[in-house]
Amino acid sequence: MKAVAVLIALLVVIVGAVALWRTGLVRSNGPIVRPIARDPGGTTFESGKKGVTLFFLARGNESFREEKREIAGGTTTTEDAKRTLNELVKGPKSGGLEPTIPREAQLLNLFIDSSGTAYVDFNQRLRGGLSGGAQEELYAVFSIVNTLTSNFVQIVRVQILVEGAEIPTLAGHVDTRTALPPQYVF
């Protein structure tokens, strides 16, 4: 009799546990796998190279124009983002485009936090290489921001740093005290 009671109790516990698990009130302790969004600019080729889009200045009509380029695919998004920015600093290869970043500027570091902010740290030459005009500064700032946010879904805004520090502006106009979302037209 006692054995039957124990058996029934055990059965009730098992059925209850299964019911709770199926309704989602109880979850297993396994790792949560998030669906990874498709990276629009991040087509990875068989050769291990990755296609990226860079934002340069269109000569003549002063607007952004994209240039496609391939980078060696790294093992992490951060590594890919660094390589992409280094390509931006090198300047355009297509005719009709102008660079937006001073050639002498050097990317010192880049990291991405969990909120989607990419921190990009350049040397002082990013500032020193600009002439002091608002338009040039706008295109310098937003070519960095647009290039990173349009290639990497993990990045939604970009904080520009110079030698590890936040700066008010690059050349006296555009507010870089906080992380900026992309802006494609002004």
Binding site: G133, E136, H173
Partner: peptide, 11 residues
């Protein structure tokens, strides 16, 4: 009040 600059173009 500002004056613009675009050294790489003839804007």
């Amino acid at each position: 009040l500002h004056v613009n600059a675009a050294p790489r173009s003839r804007a």
